[in-house]
């Protein structure tokens, strides 16, 4: 049967709906020994800032049931080093490149977007889960007015599609999604990690040096699916769903909740070929269920569908 896995996100055509989740796939090269990057819908690279960020002190990783906590602190060498050292390798592959942007202030977000002027990338993903220095470190993504403001400021600076990546650490995800759309986002992605903590009871202190960190992996999947479902009710722009996707079946859940595409993160650490396995899993589900195009099931569980 002829299956169509292609999806169009804000005018960018992906060969399939599977991308990598930022920060879990390096700049692509790290996994190129295990998989053929040409097969991916898109590679979303690790977060990049205008100037280098040194990251948090270790311990940065803690294992938890069905997932992990991380407090990497968005360590990255800055946009110019990223453009010089990491992009040329990735550009050799026939896949879309999505650059994940981070900043501590609106000015820093705009500056890092500007660093990519004239650089050949396909989309930006704005990580608004970063701490806002002007507001005592509260994440940008927890205040709808701030979301609209930062999205609008970056949108005005760029001429390729902009994805706003939402934080799940909020009461009403629909409101945040609507704010991103109002700011001019071309798409939204969700969810980023869920704030969590693990305590080493023998050492009487948290495992992470940063004390708290972001939970990812299968443990957060039900939260993520629920949030995609709720966000889809509020916006008309495409949604990229993620959070605990390990298999094609997991990805199908997100698509049925309303996602146009999906991203695979923590699963890469458990299985270096996870992204390809998810693509194959989607295909075999389509085969089994006689689905020719994912649009037949996209958002199918939404009322009125």
């Amino acid at each position: 049967m002829d299956k169509n896995l292609r999806v169009n996100i804000a005018g960018v055509e992906l060969k399939n709906p599977v991308m990598t989740a930022s920060g879990t796939f390096g700049s692509g090269q790290e996994y190129s020994e295990f998989i053929d990057l040409n097969q991916l819908g898109a590679v979303v690279v690790k977060g990049v800032s205008h100037t280098p960020w040194e990251g948090n002190r270790p311990v940065r990783i803690a294992e938890t049931h069905g997932g992990m906590l991380n407090s990497i602190g968005l360590q990255n060498p800055g946009a110019s080093a990223f453009i010089a050292n990491d992009l040329p390798f990735l550009r050799k592959f026939d896949t879309k490149i999505i650059v994940n942007l981070c900043g501590h202030t609106i000015e820093e977000y705009v500056a890092v977007a500007g660093d990519f002027d004239g650089i050949d990338v396909d989309m930006f993903e704005l990580n608004i889960s970063c701490p806002n220095i002007a507001q005592g470190g509260m994440a940008f993504g927890t205040d709808p007015r701030m979301i609209e403001k930062v999205v609008a400021a970056v949108k005005a600076r760029v001429n390729i599609p902009l994805i706003a990546k939402l934080s799940p650490n909020v009461t009403d995800i629909g409101e945040m999604a609507a704010a991103a759309q109002a700011g001019g986002a071309d798409a939204i992605s969700l969810i980023n990690t869920v704030m969590g903590m693990k305590i080493d009871i023998n050492r009487l202190k948290p495992v992470l040096d940063n004390k708290v960190g972001g939970l990812s992996g299968p443990a957060i999947k039900p939260v993520a699916v629920r949030m995609v479902y709720q966000a889809a009710k509020r916006v008309s722009i495409p949604i990229i769903g993620m959070g605990g996707i390990m298999t094609g079946e997991d990805a199908i859940e997100f698509i049925m909740a309303g996602a146009a595409a999906v991203a695979v993160g923590t699963a890469n650490f458990v299985n270096p070929t996870a992204t390809i396995d998810v693509i194959t899993g989607i295909e075999s589900f389509m085969e089994k269920q006689n689905i020719r195009d994912l649009s037949e099931i996209r958002g199918i569980i939404q009322e009125g569908k």
Binding site: G26, E30, R57, N70, I72
Partner: peptide
């Protein structure tokens, strides 16, 4: 150091760099 990916992708396994730049 604690690791997640083992291949340089997650930046979990940081150790302080004596040369300072980058810090980890």
């Amino acid at each position: 150091e604690r690791m997640a990916c083992g291949v340089g992708a997650c930046l979990g396994c940081a150790v302080e760099n004596a040369a300072r730049d980058p810090k980890y």
